[in-house]
Design a protein around this nucleic acid. Sequence first.
DNA 1: GCTACTGGTGATACGTAGTATCAATATATG
DNA 2: CATATATTGATACTACGTATCACCAGTAGC
Lengths: 140, 140
Amino acid sequence: MMATDSLDARVDEILKSLGRRTTAPRRQVARLLASKRGAFSAESINAELPEVGRATVYRTIRLLAEAGVLCKALLPDGSPRYSIDHSWHHHHLICSSCETVEEFRSSELERLLGELSDEIPGQVLGHQVDFYLTCPNCLQ
Amino acid sequence: MMATDSLDARVDEILKSLGRRTTAPRRQVARLLASKRGAFSAESINAELPEVGRATVYRTIRLLAEAGVLCKALLPDGSPRYSIDHSWHHHHLICSSCETVEEFRSSELERLLGELSDEIPGQVLGHQVDFYLTCPNCLQ
DNA sequence: GCTACTGGTGATACGTAGTATCAATATATG
DNA sequence: CATATATTGATACTACGTATCACCAGTAGC
Ligand SMILES: [Mn+2]
Ligand SMILES: [Mn+2]
Ligand SMILES: [Zn+2]
Ligand SMILES: [Zn+2]
C-alpha cells in the first residue's frame, strides 16, 4: 500500500503540473483514498468526508482518475469503482457477488491485444478486459 | 439484420420457456429493437414508444438481455448500450467520440482468455473485452 | 507580509437513469 | 366464459453525477 505522505507528494506534483492549486479539500480526499484497500465508489468517499462538499469529492476523484492516480473499473451494471492506480497496466477481476475488484496482469494477453489493436480499423485508444467471477471468498 | 417476424418467433419461444406471457407491449418493444442497427440506450427505446410505459420498456429490455436476445455493452462512463445479440460470442469496439458500438471476434483471443480463466482463482463466470477507439468515421 | 487576481469550494438545484408500488388490466387455461 | 394471476403503467422515489454561483482561499507580484 502507498504511504500517505508519498501519495501527498505525488498529488502535489500532479496538481502543480496541471496548474491546479493544492487545497485542503483535495488533500483530505487524497489522504482518504490512500488509506483505502481495494476499490470504492465515489459516494462511499463522500459519505466518509462530511466536511468536504459532495461536488468537490466528485471533482477531485475525476481529476485524480484523469491524472492516472486513480483507476476506474466498471461493475457489470456499469457502476464505476475506483482504486489507487499503481501505474503498471492491468485488468480487473470483478466478483459479481461481493463486488470486490482485484488486479490482473498477463504479458501474453497484452501482446495479443496489441496485435489486435493494429488490425482494428480506426485509432485504438485503449482496451479494457474484465473477468467476472465468484471470488474464492464468496465460494465459502 | 434479423427479420421482424423471426425475432417475434424467438421472443415468443423465450417467453413461453420462461413461463412469461406474450403481451402487446413486449411485442412492441421487441419489434422496435429488431428494427435497430447498432447499439441503443434504454431511454431511446422508451422515447420512441410513448404508448408503452417506461417501467415496461426497462423491464422488457432487462428480460431480453437476461434471456440472451440483447447484448449489453458499457460505454467508458458506464452507460449501458444494448444491441441484438447474434448468439455468437463477441466483444466490442466502442468509439469514444460517437459512441458507436461494433462487434469484434477473435478465436485466438478467446483461446487465451479461456486459458487465463482456468488459472484465475475463484469461479470465472465470464469476461468482457472492450477496445476504446476513434472509429474510421470520426477520423473524418 | 499585503494585495489583487483567479481558481476552488460547497450549498443548492437540476437532470437522468433505473426501480418500487400498487390499483387496474390483460392473458392463459380449463 | 370465468377464474387466477401475470403484467401494465402512472406515480413516486432513490442514486448518481453535474451545473450554478456567491463566497472563499491559494498564489504570484510587489
Ligand atoms: Mn485497476
Ligand atoms: Mn455485443
Ligand atoms: Zn466475492
Ligand atoms: Zn465514431
